[in-house]
């Protein structure tokens, strides 16, 4: 499966989860906001942090680290919520810290190798190297839309 369809540069928002670096297509990002306390949703799966007030609308927030099966986000003031829009729904992704915005050519990214494990959802759609660091490119739709079925 080809990662990117068009041969034009892709802009990625890179951020940290623990000591790993991840990124999202910037086209799906609506805004980035500082951490505010979320109102927990009763009996929700652990990666659902709850809901926050985003200028009058109720925005669900996912702890992305927990969602990816990593250690839960340590809470500190540098935590940010990346607000993404996918299939008409807005979702907040809680991450440790936002790093940078980088532009890459499609050929600078490669499909993730099949590691044969199916424990974590298939949310990493590509890998790339920036300054010798491996960056995982996440599939927003997978993160957001598969949350419900995972939760059930």
């Amino acid at each position: 499966m080809s990662v990117m369809d068009a041969a034009r540069p892709v802009e990625l928002l890179t951020f940290k989860l623990g000591d790993q670096e991840y990124s999202l297509d910037i086209m799906s990002v609506r805004e980035i906001r500082g951490w505010t306390r979320a109102t927990p949703m009763p009996l929700a799966p652990s990666f659902v942090r709850g809901v926050i007030n985003l200028r009058g609308t109720v925005l669900p927030v996912i702890d992305l680290a927990e969602r990816l099966g990593l250690q839960k986000c340590g809470q500190n003031s540098r935590n940010v919520i990346i607000v993404v829009k996918c299939h008409g729904h807005m979702t907040g992704l809680l991450v440790d810290a936002v790093s940078d915005i980088v532009a890459l050519q499609p050929d600078e990214m490669q499909d993730p190798p099949d590691t044969g494990t199916s424990d974590t959802p298939n949310v990493v759609k590509a890998l790339t190297l920036i300054d010798d660091r491996m960056i995982r490119v996440l599939d927003v739709a997978q993160i957001v839309t598969h949350a419900e079925s995972d939760a059930a």
Partner: peptide
């Protein structure tokens, strides 16, 4: 938005004076 997760026993939400959401 319950397309993501629907909590049992919760009908809707409101925003309180301190900006926090109450269910």
């Amino acid at each position: 938005d319950d397309s993501f997760y629907r909590a049992p026993g919760i009908a809707a939400a409101t925003i309180l004076g301190d900006g926090q959401i109450a269910l």
